[in-house]
Design a protein around this nucleic acid. Structure first.
Lengths: 224, 224
DNA sequence: AAAGTCGGCAAACAGTTGTTTACTGAATGG
DNA sequence: CCATTCAGTAAACAACTGTTTGCCGACTTT
């Protein structure tokens, strides 16, 4: 994170020799190192837990001085909160992507598994972080994740494809079905995140079968 | 962990004044402080992660000197391994207790929820530990837990109540159903472990419904 | 072009950590 | 009863931790 040195590199190209520092450069640099801190933390959290992370460890991985950390976060838990928010926002996008287009149960299931796989491919560190801290040592974090998952369940319960099959059900039954779907999807993402490609294929087949079984059960559900 | 003091208490009852130290006293005392270490660690792990635990922390909680730790374990990870083994052995007992007596699907479901609740009541710390480290920061521990859960799934697949309904199914379908049951039961235990009594009642109702839905799905399953 | 803001740094602070050392005294076995 | 074993101890070790301090120099505003 050395924005300073600039050791007279490439004296040619005088087009922007000492660029008049258009306003906003400072804030941009700050955001850049802030992101470097977040990414460094995410990287370390691949093999560690949030409750065991250290300030010096993070700054070292980000290539900056320990003191610089406090220009961005008052605490390590503050950084953790940001990571939770990012991860949950991404996961929310994933859920919306699954239920964006409607279609038959079969197509919805195939689409769900594809979207989950793509999400893990693109946000591996975030997903691993969520899986790890969902039952991790920080109560505040666990609570935030649990609350967001409940909200996802409500969203799933309100999705057209689900409403169609749960028409006339008592509210509690609808909720348990939605929670079942959410839990299965999150667990699947967590399973994808640390699986080799061939294991991933097996997991995908398994979860497709499981979602189909749940779908079958819901179509034959009698509220007794 | 002071087995020493013995300040000449109750001079009456000379039956065993300075008991001739029947053989085995030493080993018994050792096992006792070893257990104290394990219990102290389990206690600390209620609010912390295995990867963030410290030797001094554990010995302090157990009321003994840091150096004494190394008379029992070479490492903190060695202690962690023991905790994993204990927790998984207990969980194994739980699964066997669920499928011990056979009966109709309804009775099996009710029995399962009761057994899970009782297990959590009696082994709260162990269950929390498993939930936390199942996706925790220690690869070795994650692997051990995953392997054991797979073996539980095989056991569930072989249970009479399950074999009855999966007669004629392809092996892969049987496995996905068994894994679905195992995952739901473990997740339920994890949910119980940090829930107030009234939340616990809601969780119990929800999981009963979900297990019934899965059971319904399996009875209407067509392998297509 | 001068004055001010502020992100990042080196250094220092007091505590903590894991692990080893030599030791003590009770349990053990002859 | 005496010699041996050995669980637990206190002290010391270097290495590490979170956080604060004063400072510098590049960005920003006037």
């Amino acid at each position: 994170m050395n924005h300073t040195s600039h050791p007279s590199g490439t004296p040619t190209v005088p087009a922007a020799p000492a660029a008049p520092t258009a306003p906003g450069v400072r804030q941009a640099q700050k955001q850049q190192t802030r992101r470097a801190l977040l990414d460094a933390a995410l990287g370390l959290l691949e093999q560690q837990n949030l409750s065991g992370l250290g300030v010096r460890e993070v700054t070292r991985a980000a290539g900056m001085s320990p003191a610089g950390f406090y220009r961005h976060f008052p605490d390590l838990s503050a950084l953790g909160v940001v990571l939770v928010e990012e991860s949950l926002a991404n996961l929310h996008d994933m859920f919306r992507a699954v239920f964006a287009e409607s279609g038959g149960a079969e197509q919805l299931i195939d689409r769900a598994v594809e979207v989950i796989a793509a999400h893990v491919r693109e946000h591996r560190a975030h997903v691993r972080f969520l899986a790890r801290e969902r039952h991790g040592g920080v109560r505040e974090v666990r609570g935030a994740i649990a609350a967001e998952l409940r909200s996802f369940a409500e969203e799933v319960a309100a999705a057209p494809a689900v409403r169609q099959v749960t028409e006339g059900w008592p509210a509690e039954d609808v909720r348990m079905l939605a929670e079942l779907y959410v839990d299965r999807m999150v667990s699947t993402a967590a399973a994808f995140v640390e699986a080799s490609p061939e294991e991933g294929e097996r997991i995908a087949r398994t979860v497709r079968l499981q979602l189909r079984l749940i779908s079958t059960g819901s179509r034959h559900w009698n509220g007794s």
